[in-house]
């Protein structure tokens, strides 16, 4: 399996595949308040991310199979698009000093609790390092897709995407 063509063989996109469609955020993008990361590299008919954004910062346009394009100047990293995405393909990542944060969608029980130590995972489900849960939100408007924030060492920021499920 080549690392470049990973989505249709391993199930998850490689960094090269994301980069090829302009969906790999740089660490520079992640500085300060952080940046939106959408990993949606296939033309599927879907645009709730665009509809959810109050700033008009995400454009899918017509046809609705276009890939989403983020206008970073307009995006306030509010995170409303995270639970709106039916594909659970949106995260917000930020870095400060040696620490990284990822805000990601979560639909498994049990939920972790704030302060819990968790295992961060990469796109292939491999455990990378420990992380700490710093926030969990699940208001009614999320329609049962919780949004969780975890902190972990900065060096894993490009690979980390979620946390390991507890069984």
């Amino acid at each position: 399996m080549s690392a470049q063509q990973s989505l249709k063989t391993s199930g998850a996109p490689s960094l090269e595949e994301l980069k090829a469609v302009g969906q790999l955020a740089s660490e520079k993008d992640m500085e300060g308040r952080g940046c939106l990361c959408i990993e949606c590299i296939e033309e599927i008919p879907c645009n709730p991310c665009q509809t959810a954004c109050p700033q008009g910062a995400i454009t899918v346009g017509f046809p609705i199979t276009n890939l989403p394009v983020i206008d970073r100047a307009k995006c306030t990293v509010c995170g409303l698009c995270i639970p709106a995405c039916p594909g659970l393909a949106i995260t917000i990542k930020s870095v400060k000093d040696d620490t990284a944060r990822v805000r990601f969608p979560w639909e498994y029980l049990p939920f972790p609790a704030i302060g819990d130590t968790v295992r961060m995972v990469d796109r292939q489900g491999r455990e990378l390092c420990d992380g700490t849960i710093s926030s969990i939100t699940n208001p009614v408007r999320n329609n049962r897709t919780a949004v969780i924030t975890a902190e972990f060492p900065r060096k894993f920021v490009q690979d980390a995407i979620s946390i390991a499920r507890r069984s």
Partner: peptide, 25 residues
Amino acid sequence: VIEALPRLGGYGVHTAKVRRAGVPF
């Protein structure tokens, strides 16, 4: 998840969320 064809059939966003949960394809 096993697939007879050389490439996965479902939407990439669906396979990606299953893969990140540690399921091999």
